[in-house]
C-alpha cells in the first residue's frame, strides 16, 4: 500500500488546540513537512512566540524554546550564534512580529541573521480575543476597532514582506496563502525554500503566510477562506519580494 498522505515526523502526536478551521494547523504541517524533506529535524531548534501559537513548542517534534512576546528573532539569534550548525526558525503571529516585535525582526533581517521566520498574518490578535493588529485591514471590524479600522485613528496596515525585502540582509522574502489546495502547495515550496536558504548560509529568510481566524472574524471556516482570498489578497499581494537562487551561490 502506497502512502499518499500521512502526518510528518516533525510534528508530535499532540492534537492542536487551535479553533476549528484555523489555518495555523496547515502552516504547522507545512513547516514540519519542510523539515522532514530536508532531513534536518535532529538539528532544528524552533522558537515559539506569544499569541495563538504560544504552544507551538508542544507540536513541533524538534527542540523548542518559548520566547517572550515579540522577542523570538532575538532568541533565535542567540541560539544560532551559539550553535551555528543548527537550523533555527521562529513561528510568529502578526501581533507578535509586526507590533511589539517589529524591532527584533527588522534588526534580525538587517543583520542577515541566518534564521528562518514563519510569519502568520491573520489580520488580528487571535489569542487575546480578536483585537486590532498592525495588519488589520482598513475598515475591518475588531474588538478594539468596533466601527472598523479608521486611518485617522490607527493608520495603515503594515506590509512586512515588502518592508523587510528592502533590507540588504534579507535573502529570501515571500508572501503565500493557504486559502486553497493550490496555494497550500505553493506555501509549502516557499517554506522549504526558506530553510534551504538558511542551510546555504545566505542569511535571513521569511515566509509571510496569510491565514484565517474564523473565530475572531466571526465567520465559518470555509467562509473565512473566501474572505482571506477576497479581502486580504488585494492588501497583501502574494509573491516573492526577495529571491535567492541557488545559482548565485554556485556562481560565487
Amino acid at each position: 500500500m502506497r502512502t499518499v498522505f500521512a502526518p510528518p515526523a516533525s510534528l508530535t502526536k499532540d492534537p492542536f488546540h487551535y479553533c476549528p478551521g484555523c489555518t495555523h494547523g496547515i502552516i504547522h504541517r507545512l513547516v514540519a513537512e519542510a523539515i522532514d524533506s530536508l532531513d534536518i529535524r535532529e538539528r532544528t531548534i524552533g522558537v515559539a512566540s506569544v499569541g495563538c501559537s504560544v504552544l507551538a513548542y508542544q507540536y513541533f517534534n524538534t527542540d523548542m524554546q518559548q520566547a517572550a512576546h515579540g522577542r523570538a528573532p532575538a532568541v533565535a539569534t542567540g541560539i544560532k550564534r551559539a550553535l551555528p550548525g543548527s537550523v533555527v526558525f521562529t513561528y510568529q503571529g502578526d501581533g507578535d512580529l509586526a507590533s511589539i516585535g517589529i524591532a527584533e525582526v527588522i534588526h534580525a533581517a538587517a543583520r542577515g541573521e541566518n534564521i528562518t521566520v514563519v510569519f502568520v498574518n491573520n489580520a488580528c490578535y487571535g489569542m487575546t480575543g480578536g483585537q486590532l493588529a498592525p495588519t488589520t485591514l482598513i475598515g475591518q471590524t475588531t474588538t478594539t476597532s468596533p466601527g472598523g479600522r479608521r486611518v485617522e485613528n490607527t493608520g495603515y496596515p503594515i506590509r512586512m514582506a515588502e518592508m523587510l525585502a528592502t533590507l540588504d540582509g534579507s535573502a529570501y522574502i515571500a508572501r503565500v496563502s493557504v486559502h486553497d489546495p493550490a496555494h497550500v502547495r505553493q506555501a509549502k515550496k516557499s517554506i522549504q525554500h526558506a530553510f534551504e536558504v538558511q542551510l546555504a548560509g545566505r542569511g535571513f529568510s521569511m515566509v509571510e503566510v496569510l491565514s484565517t481566524c474564523p473565530t475572531n472574524w466571526g465567520q465559518k471556516p470555509v467562509e473565512a477562506l473566501t474572505w482571506l482570498k477576497e479581502k486580504m489578497l488585494p492588501q497583501y499581494p502574494l509573491g516573492l519580494f526577495k529571491v535567492w537562487e541557488r545559482s548565485e551561490v554556485n556562481a560565487s
Binding site: M1, V4, F16, I26, P181
Partner: peptide
C-alpha cells in the same frame, strides 16, 4: 480518487490517504 486535496487543507491532520 485519492487526489489529496482534503488532507492538504485539513488544519488538524485528521486525514491520511493510502493507495492499493
Amino acid at each position: 480518487n485519492g487526489c489529496g486535496m482534503c488532507a492538504w487543507m485539513c488544519p488538524d491532520l485528521v486525514i491520511s490517504i493510502y493507495k492499493e
